[in-house]
Nucleic acid binder design. Structure first.
Lengths: 241, 241
DNA sequence: ATCAAGTGCGTATTATTTACGCTAAGCTGC
DNA sequence: GCAGCTTAGCGTAAATAATACGCACTTGAT
């Protein structure tokens, strides 16, 4: 297909380009971000990975999240591309193979920022190093420019909220209260319970389940699921709040 | 600052990465996009250029627009990054110098999309090939995936309109009607003249000039300028319409 | 003078957002 | 069983924003 170059070279990673991903999860009424600590690295950073020459960048982000968390149907959204000064990047002029064999390590000149919305309970990180879910309000210092990346991701998330399948942050079954808390947490404001209830019911993407959530101290709330087809079409027009 | 690599190599372009720019202009009550035709190329495409290793991508976009249009204070906004299948890209495995000497030619694997808002009258394209201002509604076929890039840019422009210095599309002096037509064109809707007038006057970024615009058949409208400081701060909160 | 559009005020209507009262139901601990 | 709490679902009222449009007056070109 291409002249002069062998297939093996075609499948190399694109040099100097990577994807970074801010993976949002919702747990315990708190918005959290998945952080990794690679073996041999001194601090925390975001999941990141290289991009294959023959791969759409969105696929690269999804592939990277699959290998780090095991999820395979992740909703990702590209939000901004960052460039870093060459001086801040550990320049490797050694053979490409040494880069390709461990392509997660060095930060790259250009990184495409994604955020992901995932069901907290379904994420089982399988990395060699450590990981933690960190509350968005209490982020530690991060490596590289990842602090800025997280900030931008959160701003983009808030901005896109009307058109995003934010419910991907919830488990398959959830209460209305869960959903209200989710919106409240992200937007850092409160909603009137009754108005919020009316609002959600004015769309038709929620289905009440026969089951209820038990174990709390009071009346057991109903559980709901989302009809994602109807949900997506409601999101086309944007949902107001 | 960096080990093992000479300064000259540091200043090379980043391989496989470029910036594409959708330059919006407003003329004759129409929204237009600047298209180029490079010598030796068979069709029209967007202004594009490479990124230096030591350069923030936004600077790369501004630098590229400077060399192609002579403008040096362009407002640019990054909106999306695109990747292209490797097969669609003319792969150059020759010496890097041959790429560097003509870095505008080959499309790259990764391209960061920007749009620019410019004063139509101040753009003096100084390219080797041809150029045209093309109405957004009558775009010809473009090279590469540039049609998709333009589409995305327009969507992003509409979405960001409340927070964008849209007045950068107007000349230094303009009438209220000009501004109304600008909004109407971009949003593809109409506004009531009196309500629009009230709306603009509710902010304080417009200054009425002593001069008037003459030459039309009727009463000469007042000319206005923008106080860009006040404008920017109004944009922080978003301007409604 | 006349015409057509600009200028600048006012007000009425409508839609959306926000606030909140009220009743009933249902679970748990006492 | 009963108290205390929260969910569930109804209602309405007030506040705010968006929209429609009337009217008097100005002004430049023909």
């Amino acid at each position: 297909m291409t002249r002069k170059t062998s297939a093996s070279i075609q499948q190399q990673y694109i040099r100097d380009v990577s994807v970074d991903c801010v993976m949002f999860g919702f747990h315990d009424y708190h918005l959290k971000v998945l952080l990794l600590q690679w073996p041999g690295e001194s601090g925390w950073s975001l999941p990141r990975g290289p991009v294959l020459r023959n791969e759409p960048i969105t696929d690269a982000a999804i592939r990277m999240l699959h290998t780090t968390t095991g999820l395979d149907d992740v909703f990702v959204q590209q939000f901004q591309t960052f460039s870093r000064p060459a001086e801040s990047v550990q320049q490797e002029t050694a053979a490409p193979s040494s880069r390709d064999s461990n392509p997660h390590r060095a930060p790259s000149l250009i990184t495409v920022g994604f955020y992901a919305l995932v069901d907290f309970d379904r994420v089982k990180p399988k990395v060699e190093g450590n990981f933690q879910w960190c509350e968005i309000t209490e982020m530690p210092d991060l490596l590289f420019d990842h602090h800025e990346v997280v900030e931008s991701a959160l701003l983009a998330l808030r901005k896109d909220l009307r058109y995003l399948p934010i419910a991907k942050l919830l488990p398959g079954k959830f209460t209305l209260r869960d959903m209200q808390k989710l919106y409240e947490t992200i937007l850092n404001r409160t909603f009137d319970r009754r108005n919020f209830h009316k609002l959600l019911m004015s769309y038709d993407f929620l289905s009440k389940l026969p089951e209820k959530k038990t174990g709390s101290q009071n009346k057991s709330p109903h559980l709901y699921t989302i009809d994602f087809e109807k949900y997506e079409s409601a999101l086309q027009d944007g949902i107001s709040y």
